[in-house]
Simulated assay, not measured.
Amino acid sequence: MRNTLLYFLLFISIASCKKSGTTDEPTVNISDGTWRISYFWDQQDKTSNYSSYYFMFLNGGTLMAHGSSTTLTGTWSQTGTRININFSNPTMSDLNGDWLKTELTNSGIKLKDDSPSQDDQLHFVKN
């Protein structure tokens, strides 16, 4: 009887530790601030091709890439597991795709190609 009571109290104390109204996945607003590409693999490391750009994921689906002397505009959208990026400008067209989110935090976004046969990865970090 004593062991049963101890197990019951342990269960109650563990169950009460969970905060009510929370979810397992934190809410991250990628439209807040600017981002830069910290890693881009597309059959080879192409990170340096984008080192002079910073990116803004604007509310409403506009994606802006600001370089030292140019601003390129594309679109983006987000679902539960994916981020879709689309630039019509050839400079940014390698970034286009329906990317799977592997990590999404307030300081970083890690994406990978949704095709199992591809190992493409795209990582952003917050400026």
Rank of each mutant, 00 (worst) to 15 (best):
Y50D: 05
G80V: 12
N89G: 02
S20D: 13
Q118A: 14
F11A: 15
N3Q: 13
L6W: 07
N49P: 05
Y39R: 11
L72K: 06
G97W: 04
K126M: 08
T34D: 10
S20P: 08
G61P: 01
T34R: 12
N86I: 05
I30Q: 00
D45P: 01
D42G: 04
T22H: 01
G61W: 03
S69H: 14
N89F: 05
T22K: 09
T81S: 12
N127F: 11
D94C: 08
I83P: 01
W76G: 00
F124P: 04
S51N: 09
D119E: 12
T62V: 14
S93M: 10
T4N: 14
W76E: 01
S38C: 06
S68A: 14
G33I: 02
W35K: 01
H66W: 06
T62L: 10
G97H: 03
T23F: 09
A65Y: 00
I83N: 05
D45N: 12
E103R: 06
G74L: 03
Y7N: 14
E25V: 15
R2N: 15
S88N: 13
P90D: 02
L6T: 10
L104N: 07
S52N: 11
S93H: 10
L95P: 04
F40D: 01
T73S: 14
I12C: 13
S77E: 10
T75Y: 00
Q43G: 11
L72N: 03
D114G: 13
L9C: 12
S31N: 10
H123S: 06
T22E: 07
P116C: 03
N29I: 09
P116L: 08
I14L: 15
Y7F: 14
I85Y: 04
F87A: 03
G60A: 00
Y7I: 14
S88K: 10
S13N: 09
M56K: 15
S51M: 04
L6K: 11
L10R: 07
L72G: 05
N106Y: 05
F8M: 11
D113P: 06
D119A: 11
P116T: 11
N86K: 11
K101S: 07
E103M: 05
D120H: 11
N59I: 11
D94G: 13
S31A: 12
F11L: 15
Y39A: 10
G80R: 13
T75D: 04
T91W: 00
T22S: 07
R82C: 06
I85F: 05
D94W: 09
T70V: 12
F55D: 01
P26M: 01
I14K: 09
T34V: 12
Y50K: 06
W41M: 06
N89L: 01
A65H: 04
S107D: 15
N84V: 08
N106F: 03
R2M: 11
Q44P: 03
L5R: 08
F87D: 04
V125L: 05
N127D: 11
N59E: 15
F40G: 02
